[in-house]
Amino acid sequence: MDTKTAQYTFHAADSRGHANHGWLNSHHSFSFASYHNPERMHFGTLRVLNDDTVDAGMGFGKHPHENMEIVSIPLQGDLEHQDSMGNSSVIRQGDVQIMSAGTGVYHSEYNKSKEDLVKFLQIWVFPKERNIEPRYDQKSYPAEDRQNRFQRVVSPEEDGSIWINQDAYFSLGNFEAGKSTKYDIARKGNGVYAFLIKGKATIDGHELSERDALGVSETNQLDIQFSEDSELLLLDVPMGLR
């Protein structure tokens, strides 16, 4: 950690934008739809981080996207996906899904269950190259591979994770209380938006509770301790927008 130059932005869970549409209960880390906060437009190339809960049998009807990298990470339940590229699939806890919207794509996302809630994180990242051919991918990641360590699930490299059209790296980790770790920034000039899915953690001296987030830039390493059993998502993204 470079304590002389590191920059920190703390986002408390209860400071996020919130919209409850009945069938959809959504918390927005950044400006989205009717929630507009000029101080929370993006973190580098990270544009959207929505924490969504969808009622049984409900979901997002077919709608368009273009020139955005869209990642979904289910936390509970089954999410059914269909798109104009001909993909039809179900993503579950342990899966990660990405859609490069590129020149344009339509898709829908529904809670497959008629009884249970589905909870997932919806993440948008500005692309590195615009107007690419739309593409879709998803992969299941074993939970044991992120026990007390970080498991990379998204990257621009051929490293076993799903590919993203950006110099961005997403990692998930499940850590026991009392554990500590370090995280090395994946690429020079990147920053990390750390989102604590559950538990309690301290990152470079900043304390986080469930659904709190910390943006860190101008450093090359994070120092992390866990005071409760925790699940942490790290979004390692370029800080400059083209």
Results as ranks from 00 to 15, higher is better:
residue 119 K to W: 02
residue 136 Y to I: 04
residue 213 A to P: 00
residue 57 G to C: 12
residue 226 F to M: 09
residue 235 L to K: 07
residue 57 G to V: 13
residue 35 Y to F: 15
residue 96 V to F: 01
residue 63 H to W: 10
residue 2 D to M: 06
residue 226 F to K: 05
residue 239 M to I: 06
residue 99 M to S: 07
residue 11 H to V: 14
residue 106 Y to V: 03
residue 143 A to T: 10
residue 22 G to S: 08
residue 168 A to C: 10
residue 114 K to R: 11
residue 135 R to G: 11
residue 109 E to A: 09
residue 140 S to D: 04
residue 41 M to G: 13
residue 25 N to D: 15
residue 88 S to T: 13
residue 238 P to M: 03
residue 117 L to W: 01
residue 132 I to R: 11
residue 171 S to G: 04
residue 82 Q to P: 01
residue 135 R to N: 12
residue 219 T to C: 11
residue 133 E to H: 02
residue 139 K to E: 09
residue 87 N to R: 06
residue 58 M to D: 07
residue 51 D to W: 02
residue 43 F to Q: 04
residue 46 L to Y: 04
residue 132 I to V: 15
residue 192 V to F: 10
residue 96 V to D: 03
residue 185 I to A: 09
residue 228 E to F: 02
residue 145 D to V: 02
residue 8 Y to K: 14
residue 67 N to R: 04
residue 32 F to T: 14
residue 216 V to I: 15
residue 158 E to I: 12
residue 239 M to T: 11
residue 118 V to P: 00
residue 174 N to R: 05
residue 145 D to L: 14
residue 2 D to N: 15
residue 207 E to C: 06
residue 96 V to R: 01
residue 5 T to Y: 08
residue 209 S to F: 10
residue 43 F to C: 05
residue 139 K to F: 04
residue 72 S to R: 00
residue 38 P to M: 07
residue 29 S to F: 06
residue 75 L to M: 15
residue 44 G to H: 07
residue 106 Y to D: 11
residue 191 G to C: 07
residue 172 L to I: 10
residue 147 Q to N: 09
residue 149 R to T: 12
residue 117 L to H: 06
residue 206 H to F: 09
residue 228 E to Y: 03
residue 150 F to T: 06
residue 117 L to V: 08
residue 1 M to L: 02
residue 64 P to N: 07
residue 34 S to W: 03
residue 193 Y to S: 04
residue 154 V to M: 01
residue 160 G to A: 03
residue 67 N to F: 01
residue 235 L to Q: 11
residue 59 G to L: 11
residue 208 L to P: 00
residue 31 S to A: 13
residue 191 G to T: 08
residue 9 T to M: 11
residue 83 D to V: 09
residue 204 D to V: 04
residue 136 Y to E: 06
residue 195 F to A: 10
residue 123 I to C: 04
residue 214 L to R: 00
residue 146 R to L: 07
residue 139 K to D: 08
residue 226 F to D: 01
residue 10 F to G: 01
residue 118 V to R: 00
residue 231 E to K: 13
residue 85 M to L: 15
residue 94 G to I: 10
residue 174 N to I: 00
residue 30 F to M: 08
residue 119 K to Y: 02
residue 44 G to P: 03
residue 81 H to T: 11
residue 73 I to K: 00
residue 103 T to G: 00
residue 51 D to T: 08
residue 24 L to W: 00
residue 106 Y to S: 10
residue 116 D to L: 08
residue 234 L to K: 04
residue 29 S to V: 11
residue 165 N to R: 04
